[in-house]
Computed example of a mutant assay.
Amino acid sequence: MEDIIDLAARVGDTLKARNLLLTTAESCTGGGVAQAITEIAGSSEWFDCGFVTYSNASKTDMLDVSAAAIALHGTVSEEIAAAMAEGALANSNAHVAIATTGIAGPGGAVPGKPVGTVCFAWSRDGATHTERLVFQGDRQAVRTQTVAHALTGLLKFLR
């Protein structure tokens, strides 16, 4: 797996070349995507802000994710990841968003959503792409894989 800081630097180069600002909306990663991004010197040129919305209430309050959608789809769903990304764009000055929501473990599994289930969304210009993966490993391994995939997915989304 490519080093996370190298991935963040590639994301920065790509965004800077296109004059785009990024925002993040994170749940299971607890700000890990934003942390990786801000490890890069000069990231203020292409990173606007990050939202760490761990609770359902914060997703509703900060990102305008409807409580009804959370009740209908569950917090760990592609629908909620999409709503988080779109809400981050609506509540920031950014042009592009990454969202993560998942079950890092060791607890929290529900039927159909084992530990390691993570939903992603990448959004720009009214287009949102979502994905659901199940990662293996302990809590830290799931979170690390999630950060790396969020950055890799953004590079693919921007192509």
Rank of each mutant, 00 (worst) to 15 (best):
1 M>R: 12
2 E>P: 15
3 D>I: 08
4 I>W: 01
5 I>Y: 09
9 A>Y: 15
12 G>C: 01
13 D>S: 15
13 D>H: 15
15 L>H: 00
17 A>P: 10
18 R>C: 07
18 R>M: 13
20 L>G: 04
22 L>F: 14
22 L>W: 08
24 T>I: 13
26 E>N: 00
27 S>E: 04
32 G>S: 09
33 V>P: 03
34 A>H: 03
36 A>F: 02
38 T>Y: 01
39 E>D: 13
39 E>S: 14
41 A>D: 05
41 A>E: 07
42 G>I: 05
45 E>H: 14
47 F>Y: 09
47 F>L: 09
47 F>H: 08
49 C>H: 14
52 V>E: 12
53 T>F: 10
54 Y>I: 07
57 A>G: 11
58 S>W: 11
58 S>R: 11
58 S>A: 15
61 D>A: 15
63 L>I: 11
63 L>N: 05
63 L>Y: 08
64 D>G: 15
65 V>L: 10
69 A>P: 09
72 L>V: 05
74 G>M: 07
74 G>L: 02
75 T>F: 07
77 S>V: 01
80 I>C: 03
83 A>C: 07
91 N>W: 13
95 H>C: 10
96 V>G: 10
96 V>S: 05
98 I>T: 08
100 T>M: 09
101 T>C: 05
103 I>G: 06
105 G>E: 01
109 A>T: 00
110 V>N: 12
110 V>K: 14
110 V>F: 15
112 G>E: 02
114 P>E: 04
115 V>F: 01
117 T>E: 01
117 T>I: 08
121 A>E: 07
122 W>S: 12
122 W>M: 11
122 W>N: 11
123 S>C: 13
125 D>P: 08
125 D>G: 08
126 G>P: 00
128 T>G: 10
128 T>M: 14
128 T>A: 13
131 E>N: 06
131 E>P: 06
132 R>I: 08
133 L>Q: 11
134 V>D: 01
135 F>N: 05
136 Q>I: 12
138 D>A: 06
139 R>Y: 06
141 A>F: 00
141 A>H: 04
142 V>R: 06
143 R>K: 15
144 T>Y: 11
146 T>M: 09
148 A>C: 04
149 H>R: 14
150 A>C: 09
152 T>H: 13
155 L>K: 00
156 K>R: 15
157 F>K: 13
